[in-house]
Simulated scan of single mutants.
Amino acid sequence: MDLGLIVGLALAFGALLAMISMEGASISALLLPAPMVLVFGGTIAVGIASGTLRDAMQAVKSLGRAFRGDRRSPRSVIATVVGYAEKARTEGLLSLEQGVSDEKDPFLRQALQSIADGIDAEDLRVLLEDEIASAAARNRTASRFFMTLGGFAPTVGIIGTVVSLTHVLEKLDKPDTLGPLIAAAFVATLWGLLSANFIWLPIGGRLQRLGELELERMTVLMEGMLAVQAGAAPTFVEERLSALVSDAAKPGKGKSKNKTDKVGSTRDGTPPLAGFGS
């Protein structure tokens, strides 16, 4: 579980509270119901209107993931794929079907079942690439929704301020009340900027980054399972996948035993992978 979003938001609002305290202001002066209803309600409303209801529902469902983070990093799946490579080399590809029911990752489970069913390597790549494309589209939709809210919120806040200032102008005959009214008018702008930069944009950016990590993990799984299907040596699979992951610990020098020799075969007798990694 990655607590980056929770920690970041806590520090951001903590800094805001610290400033309010150091300025000697009152937090209750900012917690005005009217501007908050307009900013949050209006922002979410126009965000929904700018897309589809299905997009909004999908974005709401992704909130849990934004706070929780992904439990499986791209690097963490390398050992799993290497394990399947060892099993396939010793027991055959049909043995992979035994792990289908126990595998929790639906993407990996689909790859295992397809390999056990004897699907062609090229067809398997097309199938898995389609799944990756679908996941990318879902991630973009959720991230874009919150980014859109972050774009609308400051403008909605300004609208609230203009409405409040219109009310202030009606009270020019009462100078003693103008100060508090003007201060309250700018609360809407404050909440518009605050919600955009402290809530919506961080959530949107977080979902975008989690989506990138998910696609990286799925790409690692795809290339790894294609290598398993081709009968690659586990050491080669590990080195190949480690090279694909940006933060993975690279294997030590001389660890691999399957370097390609001049005649086009690997030193451990494994034939080279046609099209692997293309």
Rank of each mutant, 00 (worst) to 15 (best):
K61I: 15
L31T: 02
V162N: 13
Y84K: 09
G211P: 05
S95R: 10
R72I: 05
A227I: 00
A56Y: 12
A66K: 00
F152A: 14
Q58P: 05
S278H: 11
Q58D: 15
L215D: 11
I78Y: 03
H167M: 12
F145H: 14
A88Y: 04
V81Q: 04
L193V: 07
M225R: 03
A56E: 01
A66Q: 13
N258L: 10
L226W: 01
A184H: 05
R65F: 02
G47Y: 02
I199C: 12
G24R: 08
I132Q: 13
A12E: 09
V263M: 12
T52H: 12
V81I: 15
D117F: 00
P175L: 07
R140F: 01
G47R: 11
V46T: 14
A18H: 08
F13M: 08
P106N: 09
D55I: 08
R65G: 08
G150M: 09
G41C: 11
S50E: 08
P271V: 05
S164W: 11
V163M: 15
R140A: 09
G211Q: 01
A111L: 02
T189A: 07
M36F: 14
R240K: 12
S95T: 01
T161I: 02
V7C: 10
L53K: 13
R125I: 02
R75F: 00
M218Q: 06
K87I: 10
W191F: 08
I119Q: 06
L3A: 08
M218N: 01
G8I: 07
E214I: 02
S143M: 07
S95N: 02
S21G: 04
A49N: 13
P154Q: 09
G24A: 11
E103F: 09
R267F: 14
A34H: 13
